[in-house]
C-alpha cells in the first residue's frame, strides 16, 4: 500500500496545480485555448494521485516494475513533446513577425512616397 504521507502530498499537489491553472485562466494570464491542455494535465495528475492503482496499472502495462519510474518516464515524454510543440509554435510566430515587420516598414515607405507626391501637388 502507498505511504499515506505521499498519498496526501500528491493529492494536495494536484489540487494546488489545478487551482493555479483556474486562477490563471480567470485572470486572463493564460488563454483558454492553451488552458485546456493544462487543465487536462492537472486532472490526470489528480486522478493518478487519488487512485494509486491507476499508476500501478500503467506501470504494469508498460512493463515497468516501479510505478514511480513509469510516471517519471511519462512525465518526461510529456514535457519534451510540449517543449517541441512550443518551439514549433514559436518558429511560426517568428516567421509571421518577420513578415509583419517587413510589411509595416514597406507600407511606411509607401506613405512617405505618397505624402511627397501630395506635397508636390501631383495627386
Amino acid at each position: 500500500m502507498i505511504d499515506l504521507k505521499l498519498y496526501i502530498f500528491s493529492i494536495l499537489l494536484g489540487v494546488g496545480f489545478l487551482t493555479i491553472i483556474i486562477y490563471l485562466v480567470r485572470n486572463e494570464h493564460l488563454s483558454l485555448r492553451y488552458a485546456l491542455l493544462w487543465l487536462a494535465t492537472s486532472l490526470i495528475f489528480l486522478l493518478v494521485a487519488c487512485f494509486p492503482p491507476v499508476a500501478r496499472g500503467i506501470a504494469y502495462a508498460m512493463g515497468i516494475k516501479a510505478p514511480s519510474n513509469a510516471l517519471f518516464l511519462l512525465g518526461i515524454i510529456f514535457i519534451l513533446s510540449l517543449l517541441l510543440m512550443l518551439t514549433v509554435g514559436f518558429s511560426r510566430l517568428s516567421e509571421r513577425h518577420r513578415e509583419l515587420t517587413q510589411r509595416y516598414a514597406l507600407l511606411e515607405k509607401e506613405i512617405e512616397i505618397l505624402m511627397e507626391k501630395k506635397d508636390r501637388g501631383s495627386i
Binding site: 518577420r98 515587420t101 517587413q102 509595416y104 516598414a105 514597406l106 511606411e108 515607405k109
Partner: peptide, 23 residues
C-alpha cells in the same frame, strides 16, 4: 530609406529591400 522598427538581422533587412525592388 526604409526603416525597420527594431533589429531584425541581416537576412530580414536585405529581404525587405528585395521586396521593395519586386513591388
Amino acid at each position: 530609406h526604409i526603416n525597420l522598427p527594431y533589429n531584425m538581422g541581416i537576412g530580414t533587412t536585405v529581404q525587405t529591400g528585395y521586396k521593395y525592388a519586386a513591388s
